[in-house]
Nucleic acid binder design. Structure first.
Lengths: 123, 123
DNA sequence: TTTATTTGATTACAAGTGTAATCATTAATT
DNA sequence: AATTAATGATTACACTTGTAATCAAATAAA
């Protein structure tokens, strides 16, 4: 399922909290984007058509909710990026960031914790 | 500069080794993709137009080379993914992979090395 | 109940994309 | 020198995307 950039922004707004009405979504996006309400509605329609979200009628309003979960999307997107750009391995990406001085102490701490957890589990 | 999927595949073939002729690129892609020679030529043209690659004439052949370096592209793409999906932090992505049992001992070893290098540098 | 309003559905339209085919130029061959 | 062959440039065309405006249906208001 291909989600376009604009569609993603809408989907992302839905992930924030759902179910939610179109208006709610328009409001959430109003901070970030400068989209006409009609534009958001169009994108909602396209997301429904693609099966990324669904809705239930509540009187004349539709209440939308994701079918595609954020975690699943994160996983396939990051896997796709790693495959395309880093031969499917995660460490080259981290190395890239390290090289560019994009790693902070916090990141290092979290990575260390992840590693020790992993080692506990895989012992 | 927006690089489309198909354009990326061509650019990626060029990164393998350059400068190289259109035919060379067609051959490299022939293993992976099933593209007509004309299709590859079109994509080369679009990449040139976008400023992602350039060429020099060698008789009637053009020899192409990237203007956009792989490392730069890797960095902006992965930064964009992290920003969109993980709040700009790298550890949630690693955590995601860990959770899905996508981390192997090799990855862990490399991550540990990256961390110790980072710590040496930032002491 | 008629009218006004809200909201999703349909339509619009230009730019980008995937996927080539044809045109034109230039180099190689006869 | 004329013809052929190779290769980039131009054109093609349907589908997607960004960005809405208009249409239609249903509900709320008068």
């Amino acid at each position: 399922m291909e989600i376009s950039k604009a569609e993603f922004d809408v989907l992302n707004a839905i992930w924030e909290s759902f179910p939610c009405s179109a208006n709610e979504i328009v409001n959430r996006l109003d901070n970030e984007k400068n989209w006409h309400e009609k534009t958001v509605k169009t994108l909602l329609g396209r997301l429904v058509k693609k099966g990324a979200i669904a809705f239930e009628k509540d009187k004349r309003r539709y209440l939308y909710h994701p079918l595609l979960e954020k975690e699943a999307y994160q996983l396939t997107e990051s896997k796709s990026l790693l495959d395309r750009l880093f031969g499917g391995r995660i460490s080259p990406l981290v190395a890239n960031f390290a090289q560019q001085q994009k790693l902070k102490q916090d990141d290092i701490d979290e990575l260390k914790k992840l590693i020790s957890d992993w080692e506990k589990q895989n012992d």
